[in-house]
Computed example of a mutant assay.
Amino acid sequence: MYILTKLWNPEMFQGRYKKKNYFEGWYFKLINDKRDTVLGVIPGISLEADSKNSHSFIQVFDGIEGEVDYFSFPIDDFHSSNKNFVVQIGDNYFNSSKIKLDLENNNTKIQGTLSFYNIVPFPKSIIYPGIMGPFSYLPFMECYHGIVNIHHNIKGALTINHENISFDKGYGYIEKDWGVSFPEAYIWLQSNHFAQENISVMFSIAKIPWLRKHFIGHISFLKIGDNFFRFATYTGAKIKRLKKYANGIEAIIEDRHHRLEISATFSKSSILIAPQKGVMNREILESITSQVHVKLSDKSNNIIFQGEGKNTGLEMVGDLSVLLPKS
């Protein structure tokens, strides 16, 4: 029953039977109403080939200052539910509607509880249990991706180094990754901070190894109010343009009915620790204060939506030339 439950619920812990060369992590994006505090909180687990180095962790980064703290915990401090998304690491608690932090090292102390409301979960079906669609059912993938909350509002406060910071009426987002390693080369982008309410966008493209070969796969969505537009390799959508600049990217994705245009500018970044064969030893740059311009139109060039997203998460990792469409 656990196998079926986890397939249909990618947000829950997937690694119950994993012993080595495995990672799993959840990504909580937390932005207060004033937008002067922008945090990423990543709880997770790292199972190495040498089990004595396996551990659980919570990585916290300040998107404005660029500072990162990596809190390491014994593997036995990690606990999860076999029925839904509930994770506990030491005295820290995570699910789709709440986060409780009690963290301290030589530089940083963080305590507090945040509750989430007006939650917009990622839509599911048997064919599309998550953002990866039918690829969710493929075994032996290097990295799986899931989206938990497309959007939610926040209530509560965190005390960070003795400063009380209110997150009341703030915005949040939750996604996750699990598997062996992050892709060798990929782009990832996400924003749900637009002038218009209830707008959210995510775009990702990666070099994906599978069965001794590889392919370039992409997934993306744009949610406008109650309307949900999905573009992905498995839906037949095509990357018509992908261009990387020194400080950003441009992408155009088309399917039979719509064209999604994305232009993002990279801002101040943090150096995060990412997995390779389950080992948390790879450094990647991520910004969560970037900006994105999004335009959705139909095939008659009628504009359905156009807007600017703030506090955008953006990663551009590896040799991105392998991702570019063949001319």
Score class of each variant (00 low, 15 high):
161 N>W: 02
58 I>Q: 02
323 L>M: 08
61 F>K: 02
323 L>H: 04
104 E>N: 13
270 S>A: 13
255 D>C: 01
14 Q>C: 10
237 A>F: 00
112 G>V: 14
81 S>F: 10
49 A>H: 03
68 V>R: 10
198 N>S: 08
294 V>S: 06
117 Y>F: 15
249 I>A: 09
227 N>Q: 13
287 S>C: 10
53 N>M: 07
80 S>V: 08
148 V>M: 02
235 T>S: 08
6 K>C: 13
47 L>H: 00
239 I>P: 01
15 G>K: 03
206 A>W: 00
75 I>D: 04
240 K>I: 05
16 R>G: 02
11 E>I: 01
236 G>F: 06
310 K>L: 15
92 N>W: 04
294 V>D: 07
134 P>W: 09
276 Q>V: 14
191 S>F: 07
180 V>Y: 08
142 E>W: 02
72 S>E: 14
196 Q>A: 15
18 K>N: 10
279 V>S: 06
74 P>I: 14
19 K>C: 04
324 L>W: 08
133 G>F: 03
154 I>L: 14
227 N>C: 12
292 V>Y: 05
292 V>D: 01
183 P>Y: 00
42 I>M: 08
137 Y>K: 02
151 H>S: 13
82 N>D: 13
157 A>F: 11
90 G>C: 03
171 Y>D: 11
229 F>D: 11
154 I>N: 03
278 G>S: 06
195 A>E: 12
191 S>N: 09
86 V>A: 08
159 T>N: 12
4 L>K: 02
8 W>K: 09
206 A>L: 07
189 L>N: 02
178 W>K: 00
160 I>K: 05
17 Y>Q: 12
305 F>G: 09
246 A>S: 13
257 H>I: 00
277 K>W: 02
194 F>M: 05
199 I>V: 13
199 I>P: 10
17 Y>C: 08
76 D>E: 13
315 E>G: 09
117 Y>T: 09
312 T>S: 14
54 S>H: 00
93 Y>Q: 12
30 L>A: 06
306 Q>D: 15
215 F>V: 14
99 I>K: 00
191 S>Y: 07
130 G>V: 00
243 K>N: 10
320 L>A: 10
248 G>E: 09
242 L>T: 01
144 Y>E: 08
188 W>N: 00
82 N>Q: 11
214 H>P: 00
40 G>S: 11
5 T>D: 11
133 G>A: 06
250 E>H: 07
83 K>N: 15
274 A>T: 14
147 I>G: 03
311 N>M: 13
213 K>A: 05
187 I>H: 04
278 G>K: 02
309 G>E: 04
131 I>L: 03
186 Y>T: 12
216 I>Y: 04
62 D>R: 10
155 K>C: 14
111 Q>Y: 06
21 N>G: 06
92 N>R: 08
297 S>C: 11
